[in-house]
Design a protein around this nucleic acid. Structure first.
Lengths: 133, 133
DNA sequence: TCTTGACCTTCCAGTTACTGGAATGCCTAT
DNA sequence: ATAGGCATTCCAGTAACTGGAAGGTCAAGA
């Protein structure tokens, strides 16, 4: 199967597949006589695995670790769980940050009348830094 | 005031200040005879403004727009409010994405016993793509 | 006077995860 | 023969910095 095929069957663009290969996330596939990449079914499985891990927000490096565990039939599930927990912690941190921003912004927006007049509590807050932050 | 001073008084690293200048977010300051950047109080105000806008998650480009409105004493507050609303929408989208990831991951983590055994619902899910996504 | 150290300058490279484009090669059908 | 649709590689750009190298400036101390 050539790269266009595996791209279509996985939904991952060819550019991205080559990129994953270039950074070592995916192994280098065989090549046809004319130099085209030649993928097999396990390669498709790996690609789909990576795609799903990425969609859960794992970084490419984390995906590499997960993939290694996936391929290692003697792994301990505790290791996987550990990676997942770390990742959740990152997500939670990010969410807390966003929540705080969102909250401050929401308040400022409420306070701003939003018409043609120039006075604006949003700009005032940014200028004075009065709000909690 | 030289860059080290304004950096200390604002909390923004010198590297970042130069970067902001290089991308046009901040105007180029005067220079001393020996070529050092020479900032005045309004420059410090602008830098603090930018810093607070950044801390609310506005992109550098958005900060430039906000700063322009801030400097324009005849702006309409509706414009500011508009920018803030757009930004909040971005934040909300990001949060929704993270919430969904967080939710799926939380469930998978709960299902994984996390010991030395190799079977792992997390890897299984990534492999099969059975879960909602 | 010389030197040391803390500043400052510019420029280049690396980070993350792609994405777009250019120049080129392969393969099949008309 | 040529046109198209695939494939290849390499280079560059995105966002917002951050680190480091090589070098200039300046005030204080021996």
């Amino acid at each position: 199967m050539r790269i266009g095929q595996i791209a279509e069957r996985s939904g991952v663009p060819t550019k991205t597949i080559r990129y994953y290969e270039s950074v070592g996330l995916l192994p280098r596939p065989d090549r046809t006589a004319s130099g085209y990449r030649d993928y097999d079914e396990p390669a498709l499985q790996r690609l789909r695995f990576v795609q799903r891990a990425r969609s859960l927000g794992f970084s490419v490096r984390e995906c590499a670790n997960l993939l290694a565990l996936y391929e290692d039939k003697k792994r301990a599930s505790a290791e996987v769980k550990g990676l997942a927990r770390e990742h959740v912690a990152q997500i939670d941190a990010k969410m807390a940050e966003l929540r705080s921003m969102r909250c401050t912004l929401g308040e400022l927006i409420d306070k701003c009348h939003g018409d043609e007049r120039p006075d604006c509590p949003i700009l005032d807050d940014l200028a004075e830094g009065s709000g909690r932050r």
